[in-house]
Each structure stands twice: as C-alpha cells, then as structure tokens.
C-alpha cells in the first residue's frame, strides 16, 4: 500500500518518506479489542510476517473461539473460523489437503490450553507442518473473566473469587514446557508482549516458527504473554508491569525448543 505524503497545500512532498504503514496482509477494519490488549499488536506482527515472507497469496489462517473470534475480519488472507479449541485439527485438514500452503492458527489460552489441549498435543505429536500463534493472558477474556488453565495461583477471577487455589484447581499449565517433550515439535518460544524490545524478540521467534513450517521441520508455536487489563482489573500500564514482574515467573520467556536453527538451509 502506498500512501502519498502530502504537503499542507496538498502537493506531493518528495522529501518525506513513508516509514510505517499497515501491512498488506492486515485489513483496514478497526480492531474491536479492549484498550491495553495486545491482540492487535500480535495481529499486526503476524501480518508483517506474512508480508515479509511473501505469503499473502498462499496463507490460510484459522481463528479460535475467544476474544480473537473475529480475527478473520482483520487479515487479508483466506480465513476459517474454527470451533472452540479445534483450530489445530482444522489446520491439519487444510495443510494435509494443500501441503504447499502456509497454514497458521491463532489461539488463546482457553482455546488452546483448556478445551483444545487434545488437539494441540496431537497436532504436535503428528508433527503437523502448521504454525501456532498462541496468546496467553491467563484468563477467559471474552466470556467475562473466568479462570483459565493458565491463571496464576492466587489470581482472582469470576470463577475463583478468592484467588486460584491450587488444592482444588491445580497449577497453571505451561504449554511450551508441556509440548517440549514431543519430538514432532520444531519450535517453541515464549515472549511477553510488553515493550518494543520484547516485540522485536517476538518477531525473531515468529520468523523461526514460520520457517519451521516452510522448511518442513515440524510444528512451530510462539506463546505471547499478553495483558488483559479489563478482566485483570488493572490499568493498561499496570497490566504490562504485572506481566514483567509476576507472570514471567510462572511462564519464563525464551526459546524452549529450537530444531529450526539446526536444520537451517
């Protein structure tokens, strides 16, 4: 997309360069996400990657049920809306049918780590050549802030009003660590989306997760630690601090599995 940079009088200004614009793979539809949420940031990063790898024409994306249920509105690629948790199975159906396409799923923690745990584990076990963009905000956002498998111990939610009690509700599930024992997994990484630096790190991880598919290595997954200021009952800035101070202790950032670098062409 080319936006002409204009002077005040409306004539083109050849001295100014366009340095930031909407990626081609992102639609012009305004996001519906709450203020302070990082779904929009992650969407944009995915669209940037699709542009960077030149995949606009061969991408099929699978959206989840959850806050990102309308994600099909925001990408300019072919999109499928899956039922809750089943995006990895739908992606399997697409990728096996059309092995030369780039297939990604976009899933929240309720979708992937609760109802869809079976599908992600078995997609990983089969080594499906798909790329999973996983958003972990530790809560069921869309349905009103209920406890998720990823909710921190002591965290108050609408179904754990006195704080999550490990005696009755267990410990938070660390998806990347859980999947790391599976050999069909090519790449697993976790990063908080809390700062420009971390966003750049996220880009680096996403490139590898995409290459895991394009280079036929296996399943790639990038988990982003994302704020949910509305359901956490925090100001957006405080929510980001909360991730950097507390959430990362339960969900340590970094590359957990990397079989992509080793097989780099």
């Amino acid at each position: 997309m080319n936006i002409a940079i204009e002077k005040q009088d409306g004539s083109p200004d050849a001295d100014l360069k366009c340095v930031f614009e909407r990626p081609q793979a992102l639609s012009d539809k305004p996001f519906h996400y709450c203020p302070g949420c990082s779904h929009g940031t992650y969407h944009r990063l995915i669209a940037e990657m699709i542009d960077e790898f030149g995949l606009l024409d061969k991408t099929v994306g699978i959206c989840p049920v959850g806050c990102a249920v309308f994600a099909y509105e925001y990408f300019e690629t072919d999109m499928i809306e899956a039922s809750h948790g089943r995006a990895p199975a739908v992606a399997t159906g697409v990728k096996r049918s059309l092995p030369d396409r780039f297939v990604f799923t976009y899933q929240g923690d309720g979708d992937l780590a609760a109802i869809g745990m079976g599908e992600i584990i078995h997609a990983a076990a089969r080594g499906e050549r798909i790329t999973v963009f996983f958003v972990n905000n530790g809560i069921f956002g869309m349905t009103g802030g209920q406890m998720a498998p990823t909710t921190l111990i002591g965290q108050k939610t609408t179904t754990s009003v006195d704080g999550r009690d490990p005696r009755t509700t267990g410990q938070p599930i660390r998806v990347c660590e859980l999947l790391s024992s599976i050999e069909g997994v090519a790449y697993l990484a976790r990063v908080p989306l809390t700062s420009p630096k971390n966003i750049n790190t996220c880009r680096k991880y996403m490139r590898k997760a995409i290459r895991a598919q394009l280079e036929d290595v296996g399943l790639g997954l990038v988990e982003v630690l994302s704020p949910c200021p509305v359901q956490w009952g925090m100001k957006p800035g405080d929510a980001l601090h909360h991730i950097d101070e507390s959430v990362v202790k339960a969900f340590p950032p970094g590359e957990i599995v990397d079989r992509v670098s080793a097989t780099a062409k």
Partner: peptide, 18 residues
C-alpha cells in the same frame, strides 16, 4: 485422528480447502 472431535474438525478444514 486422536478423537472423533478432531476427525470432524479435520473434515471441516479439508472441506473448507475445497
């Protein structure tokens, strides 16, 4: 597939792919 739930959703994906 790992279950009938996964089976039908794989069908959904492949059917969507034409």
């Amino acid at each position: 597939a790992e279950s009938e739930v996964a089976s039908i959703n794989m069908v959904y994906g492949a059917a969507a792919a034409g």
